[in-house]
Design a protein around this nucleic acid. Sequence first.
DNA 1: AAGCACATCAACCGCCAGGCG
DNA 2: TCGCCTGGCGGTTGATGTGCT
Length: 176
Amino acid sequence: MGRSPCCEKEHTNKGAWTKEEDERLIKHIKQHGLLRCGKSCRLRWINYLRPDLKRGNFTEEEDELIINLHSLLGNKWSLIAARLPGRTDNEIKNYWNTHVKRKLISRGIDPQTHRCLNPSNKNPRNVSMQTDEIEPMPTMGNDVGFKVEDYSNCSSVEFLHPQINLDLSIRPPHLY
DNA sequence: AAGCACATCAACCGCCAGGCG
DNA sequence: TCGCCTGGCGGTTGATGTGCT
């Protein structure tokens, strides 16, 4: 798993901490006190305190986007979150587990494979195929350079949002 | 009103990989 | 080159909220 840089944002410093920055941090902790490890602070900031977070209910568009991205990427929540501005991987993961899974099952789609659950209930819209023709979902070795239609005649991707942008190349969120 | 079951979601855990001395 | 440290990630847990009986 590659580690993306944490300090690419404008107005943030990279590299070694300066003496002044150290002093400011020490002063802040002394002044306000915080019995939390850095990891916990980071999580709290990313998932809850960040000013650019959307909060609130997911829209129908976000819903479908999550489903489509999950069908392509699997449980790569951070990659999915990168395509949804203002949403965190944790938020999406929770939303998936509590809402989307059930939604897909009610549509007759397996939430893990995005294939039809019931062999006799072919594609809910119009695809017909034998179940023994269904190949397992390939593992995502990379994030670019594959075509959705290669995978299945019965996945949720193409019949839900055929117009969706499937360009999964990596770039900073603000460039999307 | 009380007790229970289920749903939701923030936070924790453990693993992996990159950075750095 | 090596080993430690820490950020990033996905999976899981547990506290809290909500609805039902």
